[in-house]
Design a protein around this nucleic acid. Structure first.
Lengths: 345, 345
DNA sequence: CTGAAAGCGCTTACAG
DNA sequence: CTGAAAGCGCTTACAG
């Protein structure tokens, strides 16, 4: 691999000039720039990322902290992030955050503190106070996506509104016995996480319907965010003497589990049971699943653009203080009615 | 962020000693090592990744080249890779390889040549000769997974055998009119890519059955590797006057498309049509889909272990020349019979 | 606009 | 076992 010196020698200028000509930082005459470029091209020179970032303090690399890399949602968001970062020359390094405490310590105490990235994107993980403090002490721009922490600037969907919308859809169809399958943390602390917000929206919509005079039976069933978890929970629910006529599942994958449980028990959808999910999953159309699409790819693009803005990279947004638009729960979502929801028979 | 100097001062030793004590490279007295560790701990010191890699030539970072980051298969493989690399302190930087030529040039001519990674994992992408040459000129260990290139050491499944196994399963059930939905490149060049190999297996199995005296009708239908692509292709196929009694889809996601097409046309599965896929997809159990599982998570673990071995990291394998086991098509796969395949009625 | 030189924060022969 | 010193390959004030 050729070095800066090789290019300098070939072009007959100093290394300083080569650096300036190639990076575009600092002045260079048009003519010199051309000569340097030609020499670099000729030699196949590419600046060493590590030398460059040691000298400049810029890593041109963004860290992305993800839970569950193999989940469709995160993979899709990641694809969205990459699609906006790559054209600006930023690489992405991946940090997988699991529930394993030793691994989390390794991540927060070591991996993230090695100065490898210019900024961090954190995707819907729940962080302890100590972890949030760790993140702040990094001295880097950190942008969250769906992170339930007011301290971190971040983008998110208004998941309470999402839960409300899903529930209202079922109520509007005439359902009066509705179950919500999801998660809910009511451990004293202010619960801002996505599952709890969705459940809150469910509760709110039910309360509003009751206030308006409807008699609504509402149940909440806990299940983890997987197909099989929801399938088990739904199986139990549907074998009760008086099963609900509609289920709001907290994610599309959970909704698939509900569909499977209904099929297992010989219930027809939407004849015997209406089902609605959340996400806009890849296969939702295949299942004809009514869902609330939250455009995960676009979310990735937005959060990617947000870090670029925080770093002062790119177009008009450069340098703009990103706080204002970032702390809002402003990401779009949209009800997609399909064949798994209908009026109760 | 504290630096090496700070630690050296606090521990009352030279920076050289700190470096040795903390990295474990070179001799240090037990006592000094402890003192240095304590000082580092106390200060919260973590070595700068960029300075360290500039000085040592080791980046402790592995590049992973992926097509289609949002595909379940690749996300799962990636998760497997991360699970073996992270415990060894290796980070992962992601390089998304699309079909966009400009983007590919940027990747091969610049991004990969910046010296950011110690080794590269390349996941089932098809590379031009120039790109393979680029990869070799990097002077780094490169390990492929499902890359159809003899020049690159790599792991792969014997996809011809996979295609044969799927087809034999249908033949063994008694099907004599079988279609394969997939891809096949017959452009003169030796076609070693996964889709073509699977089709080759299909052809081989059919030929063998004929040789053994069976009268078999076999058709090949081209479709891209998506649910909707396969759905369209299957729709056309199933509306022919004499549709096949069984379909071998080249991936599980394609099989989902076939199931949807059958449902669209009111055909029952497996009553009117048997369907088999390949992958061992997340949702295959949900669909009761017969498939050939290829254990993608384990594939990721294997290829992760292979690069570690190539770098001489970790246990017994360190330094072992990885060529021999790596060029074989030795990754396991397994038929998982479920409810979408049965004898023809 | 261009160059000489210091410096980014580590690692590693080389001596002792 | 430990330290002084060179060096990894760039970038960037500072002069001119």
């Amino acid at each position: 691999m050729p070095s800066l010196d090789d290019v300098a020698r070939a072009a007959g200028v100093s290394t300083a000039t080569v650096s300036r000509a190639l990076s575009g930082r600092g002045r260079t005459s048009e003519e010199t720039r051309e000569r340097v470029r030609a020499a670099a091209e000729e030699l196949g020179y590419v600046a060493s990322a590590t030398a460059s970032s040691l000298a400049s303090g810029r890593a041109e690399n963004i860290g992305v902290v993800v839970p569950l890399m193999d989940r469709w949602f995160f993979a899709t968001v990641l694809d969205g992030i990459a699609s906006v970062l790559a054209p600006h020359g930023y690489d992405i390094t991946l940090y997988n955050l699991t529930d394993d405490q030793a691994q989390r310590r390794r991540l927060f105490d070591t991996a993230l503190r090695r100065g490898r990235v210019d900024a961090l994107i954190v995707l819907s993980v729940e962080l302890s106070d100590a972890e949030v403090a760790r993140l702040s002490s990094l001295g880097l721009p950190v942008v969250g996506l769906g992170v339930p922490r007011a301290e971190l600037p971040g983008l998110r969907v208004d998941d309470t509104a999402v839960g409300r919308l899903a529930t209202e859809h079922l109520l509007a169809l005439g359902h009066r016995d509705i179950a919500h399958i999801g998660l809910s943390r009511r451990d004293g602390r202010e619960a801002l996480d996505i599952p709890t917000r969705r459940r809150q929206g469910f509760d709110d919509a039910v309360a509003a319907a009751r206030k308006a005079g409807s008699t609504v039976t509402a149940r909440f069933v806990e299940a983890d965010f997987t197909v099989s978890g929801a399938r088990r929970a739904a199986s139990a629910l549907l074998s009760e003497p008086q099963p609900p006529t509609a289920v709001f599942a907290a994610s599309d994958e959970m909704a698939y589990g509900v569909l499977a449980a209904a099929r297992d028990r010989g219930l027809s959808v939407p004849g015997d049971l209406s089902v609605i999910g959340v996400d806009g999953h890849d296969l939702a159309a295949l299942f004809d699943l009514t869902t609330i699409d939250q455009f995960p790819h676009a979310q990735g693009e937005r959060v990617g653009a947000a870090v670029l803005a925080a770093l002062g990279v790119g177009g008009v947004d450069a340098g703009r203080p990103p706080e204002a638009p970032l702390t809002e729960a402003s990401l779009p979502f949209h009800l997609v009615p399909r064949a798994t929801t209908a009026p109760p028979s």
